[in-house]
Nucleic acid binder design. Structure first.
Length: 429
RNA sequence: GGAGAGGUGGGUGAGUGGCUGAAACCAACGGUUUGCUAAACCGUCAUACUGGGAAACUGGUAUCGAGGGUUCGAAUCCCUCCCUCUCCGCCA
């Protein structure tokens, strides 16, 4: 949520920023609602003040056993007016908040202005030597992850579809173990080497949490919802972890607070049919290790860089080629002010696959969710924290890259060294 | 699922219609004292919105789980809902 004062004071900047982001949103409407709201407030508060003063007088009159009937009658009608105005105010508040919730976050000045993914800027890439050989060797038939999974009997998308529906992968044998190994390896590395504290969150959350991180109201059709209980399956652990501190004021010495948590992630992916959908490329349920930080506003952009570095380290240890993109304004998500995507290389698809997205939300989520901190120093007012998060990483796309990059000409998989203590085996096949 | 108890400020916890934005204590912060630490003492100590002011600051309104009702006036009375806890049942 944007600060209404910022919209009020610099509507043109806000309008331009929304347009750069390819989002809809009308600051004028918000400004009009805000104006109307404040008019009502000043009137209703004047009347409430009157009522409070006169009620006090009535109390004194009664105490002195004097007649207060006239004042009581007068206040009766004031009360009626207040009730009406309160109702109007409630409506105005609601409409204003509704509009505000639908305005996207504005991008940081360092984000390149652009409309589509073509305008994203490649920041750097990292390619371990053996991968190049793999792709350049004409004798080496490169299998995609589906074929590898089927041949080695470690992934079964057909049976997954039978059990649940398409997009619900079933991991078998070494495939299941490898998945679990990846999760544990990533968690351990972030906890041990990168200073995160582990969270194991609930996988379903309430509406307030979804609004807090910005999934609702805009993305409602992408969520799995348990209507009976008004709960949502989480699309990412970002939601429960960020909402841990919803409506709280943190002490300044708690910042920065960095958390790392595994969760299954559920996405309906409505409207994405026809895009890259085969195998792991687009699924309804996947596993992800998520990184979330609550930081002091002054440091959030440094923290974003270190977040990205933490994710990169995982890929380097796994020896998976990747590149980092700075998303342009048009490709940056609704809630984010600046986002880096980390993409892994798929030799079979001969393309880069998004495996992580690291974002600085500045105070956008914090304002929605009411996450503040009390700055050092006496008499300081609470301020909104900045929140960041990134996938560290999602296993589905990572599994594609891992299987494809680690395959031998014979169609076996060589498990990366760092994972071997976790899998207990060194090859599959 | 059945029965009961309870939700008050950062924490504990008083408060059953007006002088309670809310006692007291603890924590925190500032200060005095002290060779240092500790202790003691004094003071400060909620949040949001809104108005005035360049600002320091200051006026107003709201908030005692949420919403509604009664009343001139509600933390306090009534209704609905939510949440937490305890016991029983069921279950991993």
């Amino acid at each position: 949520m944007l600060d209404i004062k910022r919209i009020r004071e610099t509507p043109d900047e806000v309008r331009q920023a929304i347009e750069n982001k390819n989002e809809k949103g009308n600051p004028d409407e918000v400004i009009a609602l805000d104006l109307r709201r404040r008019e009502i407030i000043s009137e209703v508060e004047r009347l409430k003040n009157l009522r409070n003063v006169v009620s006090q007088e009535i109390a004194h009159l009664k105490k002195d056993r004097q007649d207060a009937e006239e004042k009581i009658t007068e206040m009766k009608s004031v009360g009626e007016t207040i009730k009406q105005l309160d109702e109007e105010l409630r409506t105005a508040d609601e409409r204003l908040r509704e509009q505000l919730l639908r305005l996207p976050n504005l991008c940081d000045a360092s984000v390149p202005v652009g409309r589509t993914a073509d305008d994203n800027a490649e920041v750097r890439s990292w390619i371990p030597p053996h991968t190049m050989r793999l792709n350049e060797d004409p004798e080496h038939t490169v299998l995609d992850h589906l074929e590898l999974g089927r041949k080695l009997d470690i992934l079964d998308f057909d049976r997954g579809a039978k059990i649940s529906g398409s997009g619900f992968p079933l991991y078998i044998g070494e495939g299941a173990t490898l998945e679990r190994a990846l999760i544990n390896f990533m968690l351990d590395t972030h906890l041990r080497d990168h200073g995160y504290r582990e969270i194991f969150p609930p996988f379903v959350v309430n509406t307030d949490s979804m609004v807090g991180t910005g999934q609702l109201p805009k993305m409602a059709e992408d969520m799995y919802r348990c209507a009976e209980d008004d709960l949502y399956l989480i699309p990412t652990a970002e939601v429960p972890i960020t909402n841990m501190y919803r409506d709280e004021i943190l002490e300044a010495d708690r910042l920065p607070s960095s958390f790392c948590g595994y969760s299954a992630c559920f996405r309906r992916e409505a409207g994405s049919y026809g895009k890259q959908t085969k195998g792991f490329l687009r699924v309804h349920q996947f596993n992800k290790v998520e990184l979330v930080k609550f930081v002091h506003p002054e440091h959030s952009y440094d923290e974003l860089e270190s977040l990205v570095a933490n994710v990169e380290r995982i890929l380097q240890l796994l020896e998976i080629p990747y590149r980092i993109l700075l998303l342009c304004t048009g490709d940056t998500s609704f809630s984010s002010a600046k986002t880096y995507d980390i993409e892994v290389w798929s030799p079979a698809e001969e393309t880069w696959l998004e495996a992580s997205s690291c974002s600085n939300f500045e105070d956008f989520q914090a304002r929605r969710a009411g996450i503040r901190f009390r700055p050092e120093g006496k008499g300081s007012k609470p301020q909104f924290v900045h929140t960041l998060n990134g996938s560290g990483l999602a296993t589905s796309r990572l599994m594609v890259a891992l299987l494809e990059n680690c395959q031998t000409p014979e169609g076996k998989i060589i498990i990366p060294k760092v994972l071997q203590p976790y899998t207990g085996f060194t090859t599959i096949g």
